[in-house]
Computed example of a mutant assay.
Amino acid sequence: MSGLPASARLAWWGTAWLQGRIGPDDLLDAVLGDDVTHVVGGPDGSAPLLLELADARAEGATAIAAVFPAPGDPAGLRGPRETNAAAIEAGEVALLLGAGRALVPAQVGRAVEWTLLPAERRPPPDLGEADRGLRAALLAAANALAELDVASWRPEVADELHDLRSAVPLRAPGGTPARCVDLAGRALHLEAVAHLALADDGGAVSAGEAAARRAAIEPLEQAARRALSAACSPDGWPPSP
Score class of each variant (00 low, 15 high):
residue 1 M to T: 11
residue 1 M to E: 13
residue 3 G to E: 13
residue 12 W to F: 13
residue 13 W to Q: 04
residue 14 G to L: 03
residue 16 A to H: 01
residue 17 W to A: 05
residue 17 W to K: 03
residue 18 L to R: 01
residue 18 L to V: 01
residue 19 Q to V: 06
residue 21 R to C: 04
residue 22 I to E: 02
residue 23 G to Y: 05
residue 26 D to P: 01
residue 28 L to A: 11
residue 28 L to F: 04
residue 30 A to E: 05
residue 31 V to I: 12
residue 34 D to R: 14
residue 36 V to H: 15
residue 42 G to D: 02
residue 43 P to R: 14
residue 45 G to V: 09
residue 46 S to C: 13
residue 47 A to N: 08
residue 48 P to S: 04
residue 48 P to E: 04
residue 49 L to I: 02
residue 52 E to I: 06
residue 52 E to W: 15
residue 56 A to H: 01
residue 62 T to C: 10
residue 62 T to Y: 06
residue 63 A to F: 05
residue 63 A to Q: 10
residue 65 A to R: 08
residue 67 V to E: 03
residue 67 V to Y: 06
residue 68 F to S: 02
residue 69 P to D: 05
residue 71 P to K: 06
residue 72 G to N: 06
residue 73 D to P: 07
residue 74 P to Q: 09
residue 75 A to Y: 03
residue 78 R to Q: 15
residue 78 R to M: 13
residue 78 R to K: 12
residue 78 R to W: 04
residue 79 G to M: 09
residue 80 P to L: 10
residue 80 P to H: 10
residue 81 R to S: 15
residue 81 R to H: 14
residue 82 E to D: 15
residue 83 T to G: 12
residue 83 T to K: 10
residue 85 A to H: 14
residue 86 A to R: 11
residue 87 A to N: 04
residue 89 E to A: 15
residue 91 G to H: 04
residue 91 G to T: 02
residue 92 E to P: 01
residue 94 A to I: 01
residue 95 L to S: 06
residue 95 L to V: 12
residue 96 L to S: 07
residue 97 L to V: 12
residue 101 R to T: 09
residue 103 L to A: 03
residue 103 L to I: 02
residue 103 L to Y: 00
residue 104 V to K: 04
residue 104 V to H: 06
residue 108 V to D: 13
residue 108 V to F: 09
residue 109 G to A: 12
residue 111 A to Q: 13
residue 114 W to E: 00
residue 115 T to F: 01
residue 115 T to Y: 01
residue 116 L to D: 13
residue 119 A to G: 06
residue 120 E to P: 00
residue 121 R to Q: 14
residue 121 R to P: 07
residue 122 R to K: 08
residue 122 R to F: 04
residue 123 P to D: 09
residue 126 D to S: 11
residue 126 D to W: 03
residue 129 E to G: 13
residue 132 R to Y: 05
residue 135 R to M: 12
residue 139 L to N: 12
residue 140 A to K: 12
residue 140 A to L: 14
residue 142 A to I: 07
residue 143 N to Y: 08
residue 145 L to G: 03
residue 149 D to T: 11
residue 150 V to N: 00
residue 150 V to E: 10
residue 151 A to E: 11
residue 161 L to C: 06
residue 163 D to L: 05
residue 166 S to Y: 10
residue 168 V to H: 09
residue 168 V to A: 13
residue 168 V to K: 10
residue 169 P to C: 11
residue 169 P to M: 10
residue 172 A to G: 08
residue 173 P to A: 07
residue 176 T to M: 07
residue 178 A to W: 08
residue 178 A to K: 12
residue 179 R to H: 12
residue 179 R to E: 15
residue 180 C to D: 07
residue 181 V to E: 15
residue 183 L to W: 03
residue 183 L to N: 02
residue 183 L to Y: 03
residue 185 G to M: 10
residue 186 R to Q: 15
residue 189 H to N: 09
residue 194 A to D: 07
residue 195 H to M: 14
residue 195 H to F: 15
residue 196 L to W: 13
residue 198 L to G: 11
residue 200 D to Y: 13
residue 207 A to L: 15
residue 212 A to Y: 01
residue 213 R to P: 00
residue 214 R to I: 00
residue 215 A to W: 07
residue 220 L to W: 01
residue 220 L to G: 00
residue 222 Q to N: 12
residue 225 R to L: 06
residue 225 R to A: 04
residue 229 S to A: 14
residue 231 A to H: 05
residue 231 A to F: 05
residue 233 S to P: 00
residue 234 P to Y: 02
residue 236 G to I: 06
residue 239 P to L: 11
residue 240 S to T: 14
